[in-house]
Design a protein around this nucleic acid. Structure first.
Length: 241
DNA sequence: ATGAAGATTGCCT
DNA sequence: GGCAATCTTCATG
């Protein structure tokens, strides 16, 4: 079933762990790709120094200041897209949850094709992708990391503001039938089938401020969860006279 | 107008 | 583990 909008009308710190196990799907003329979320991060909005909304509304983050249940998609590092779910709909709150990783559960071939072609633009030079190491490790790396997840799903700027709570949208969030919030658990590691997967928390990845707040949530031991990296400032452009 | 930094990734040593 | 790629956005002059 489709996730109801009320699900997102809560603080992002509550929505985030509940999103684990939910399924994000994107339908395009090329086909459908669906990802079960395994790692997310909460951002509080105006009060959160690490949030894009910290310094108020701008053109880029405008969607975060709108109603919940919509996708906030942004472009970064000149080549990557990342997608968030907008939470609280209150004026000026701008809370959101960054979708950091997931497991492909439908459309794996299409996802792999998108991941093999390159970050943003394709390179028509090489005919045989044999030497290309992108996404070579099977399905594990296809949506492991926020930019990879977007690439596998084919999410770009055109989906900024997309409503994920309506069936007519190409981008939708759903849970399995029978449970409005949690999808069926899968056996994993030493967990017995039917045993809920353990959710653990830790510091958010790559943020330069408020990194100490444990607003990252993921399934313990899940191989699709991205590796933790602390924020590292890049050295300024060097000019030689 | 200009520039610095970025919720990242992949390739290099 | 380090660093380049690549360009948009936002803040400042």
């Amino acid at each position: 079933m489709l996730i109801p909008r009320e699900f997102f009308a809560r603080p992002s710190g509550e929505v985030a762990p509940d999103l684990l196990g939910c399924v994000l799907e994107h339908e395009t003329p090329d086909g459908l790709v669906a990802v079960e979320l395994t790692e997310v991060e909460a951002y509080a909005g105006r009060s959160d120094p690490a949030s894009h909304a910290y310094r108020g509304q701008t053109r880029r983050n405008a969607v975060m200041f709108g109603p919940p249940g919509h996708a906030y998609v942004y472009f970064t590092y000149g080549m990557h897209f990342c997608v968030n779910m907008v939470c609280l709909g209150e004026e000026g709150s701008a809370a959101a949850v960054l979708l950091r990783a997931g497991a492909i559960i439908a459309g794996e071939d299409l996802a792999r094709a998108r991941r093999t072609r390159g970050p943003v633009s394709e390179s028509p030079v090489s005919e045989s992708p044999v030497s290309g190491s992108r996404a070579r490790n099977g399905s594990r790396d296809l949506a492991r990391g926020p930019a990879r997840l977007c690439q596998a799903l084919g999410i770009d700027r055109s989906l900024d503001g997309a409503d994920v709570c309506v069936a007519s949208s190409p981008l939708r969030m759903r849970a399995e039938a029978g449970n409005p919030v949690r999808s069926p658990v899968r056996a994993q590691g030493d967990d017995r089938p039917g045993t809920p997967r353990r959710i653990v928390t830790g510091p958010r990845v790559g943020v330069s401020s408020a990194a100490e707040i444990p607003w990252r949530f993921w399934y313990e031991g899940d191989p699709t969860v991205s590796a933790y990296r602390a924020h590292v400032p890049r050295r300024p452009k060097l000019v030689t006279p």
